[in-house]
Design a binder for these strands. Structure first.
Lengths: 342, 342
DNA sequence: TTTAGCACTCGTCAGAATAGAGTGCTAACG
DNA sequence: CGTTAGCACTCTATTCTGACGAGTGCTAAA
């Protein structure tokens, strides 16, 4: 598609622009050393690259900047996978060594590390409950009218929800129901729980308990929760140091979106495993037109999957970020698996 | 301290400045109508007020802006407690009507409402565990080596922490210990738990269990958590619309601080109940010199206390914010108390 | 005591001049 | 024929200027 020389020049331009955030001219490329042609030759090629849509010119007498298409080509064909610095590797080792027990702590911590290593904003999604199963269910009465439902999943996560005890339901009734659930539904995948409750438990309750309606409502409430993936943000203020967000208006649209967790979840989750790069307008959401979002997936016990992502300006250090995400997602999968002993 | 007329003028200046964010001159005050003097007279008084430290002048030929001391006087003596708009009252009623069960949901929701009503940033602290007591403790084994410790408090909050099972400790041993704790420590205030564990439970364990060291470590881990109050932020991006934070540098110092939850907790918590206003440099933290922080306390079941706060520029709508916080803190206390039935 | 009047200060805005970066084109070179 | 040197041209950013206006402080009169 592109000639050898055009590739080299495109690579040089993207590289320079990522560093400087300023339009790059033919002269400065010629001086870099890795493209040994005179400015005039490079100018000709640049005109061609612009015609092909890989470059843009802010105004007539400025240098060129990469277009989204240009970044895309860079990422797909050119970006050299940089080896991480040793100091960064140290951070990873620390992450692994810290032996964090709770899943959320691992994720949270990974997010912080990610943001501080890259100087961009990290967005992590907690594991999807899709592939986890029920380990334990419990109803603790708090008062005459409320109880707390506690759900422990096979991956070790604990969800709890306070529910209202329906009129007339007794503590012993609730206890019997909880025992029934544990006996019958342990090991059942979370996403099938509701169905199983209706198909198996419902009749049982109807047969042996006095308050069918109330008890079913209670279960409905208890298992309604926990569906939404948690979102962990870190380094949102790194957005402020990017020159492209000097304009408060643009900044606000992005930061506002970061506060909308449901939308974020939607934008980040994808069926695809592995690394994914969405550049500028490739992102569906309007607020991200000036941003690139790079995501990777991690797994928990090989069962549940979550997403880790980096949000930055389209002028992003793709090579470094992709490398880091790749390593970190593996490190997380390792840290989150086999924690429960053999 | 200040003459009638000086008060009126100060009031007018603060009022105007809060609205416009521009230095206010003698002429515009004279035209307002509520201070019926000529610009010249007002100028004289303004010079006096500046000498007394209530006003400042950005430069010689500009109008005056209130100093921190000026705001302080305004808040203490002048700020008229505005009645809330009916549309705002509606939001409150909605809050009360929603019948949220979980404590965190109530707090989270209150924060959102607060931010959207005031257009500032809301910072809410979860209830301090200080006055709550233990209701239930439970240890659920997850695997050979890990278990999840679940702590339910008298106020209905559920803390959970994944802990490592020490070498050699058996499931039945853990179960016995949990039962012991429930029997002995139910109703004991959270802040005394550690002490009571050491003074009472420790010997008991030593007498009847095989793995004293291990079990004690387990308890240590389990009760180490839950101490830190949760922080709920909302409307952080409202900071961006304030003209005083047009300067990205200033903005960043504030937003950075908002990400540091431990520091925030420290800054917000105070022994004092009721409304508290900290203006500009009255805040201990350097990042808040251009900000005012107004806080109020709410109570949960009359036992635990939390803080709700609004952070904005020193040029803040004090009257409105104070009124709103006052009402909302009461509304929250109401919503959070008596939820557990009679 | 209050106010009108006036000279003065200072920041802001618009326009002009300048410098500089970078381009596109043409012609020469190997 | 690809490459390069040279040059005119374009456009932006910066600096400077002067005019303007908002607001003050002071003085003197009401």
């Amino acid at each position: 598609m592109l000639s050898e020389r055009q590739s080299m020049i495109l690579n040089a331009i993207v590289d320079d622009y990522i560093r400087s955030a300023e339009p790059v001219g033919s002269r400065s490329i010629s001086k870099r050393g890795d493209v040994a042609f005179s400015p005039a030759t490079i100018r000709n090629e640049m005109a061609d690259l612009e015609e092909l849509g890989f470059l843009e010119q802010p105004h007539t007498s400025a240098g060129r900047i990469p277009s989204n298409k240009g970044y895309r080509y860079y990422v797909d064909h050119l970006a050299p996978l940089k080896p991480l610095k040793t100091e960064d590797l140290k951070l990873f080792k620390q992450l692994a060594a810290e032996k964090l027990n709770a899943v959320e702590e691992v994720i949270q911590h990974a997010g912080t590390v990610l943001a501080s290593m890259t100087n961009y904003t990290s967005i992590l999604l907690g594991p999807e409950m899709f592939n986890t199963s029920l380990r334990h269910f419990r109803l603790l009465p708090l008062s005459e009218t409320t109880a707390v439902a506690i759900i422990v999943t096979s991956s070790g996560e604990v969800e709890n929800k306070t529910v209202t005890i329906p009129e007339g339901v007794s503590v012993s009734e609730m206890e019997r129901m909880a025992n029934l659930l544990n006996a019958r539904l342990e090991g059942v995948p979370m996403h099938k729980l509701k169905a199983r409750i209706y198909s198996e438990i419902a009749q049982e309750i109807q047969r042996h308990a006095d308050h069918y309606e109330g008890l079913m409502k209670l279960l409905d409430d208890a298992f309604a929760a926990g569906k939404d993936q948690k979102v962990f943000l870190s380094g949102t203020t790194n957005m402020l140091i990017q020159p492209e967000f000097r304009d408060i208006g643009k900044l606000k649209t992005v930061l506002d979106l970061l506060e909308e967790t449901p939308t974020l979840t939607r934008l980040l989750s994808s069926e695809q495993k592995g690394i994914q790069v969405r550049i500028g307008s490739e992102n569906i959401h309007q607020a991200f037109v000036n941003c690139s979002l790079i995501t990777a997936t991690y797994s928990l016990e090989g069962e549940a999957f979550g997403t880790i992502g980096i949000l930055g300006p389209t002028r992003m250090e793709y090579a470094k970020v992709i490398g880091t995400l790749d390593l970190l997602s593996r490190a997380m999968s390792r840290a989150l698996t086999g924690r429960h002993g053999a």
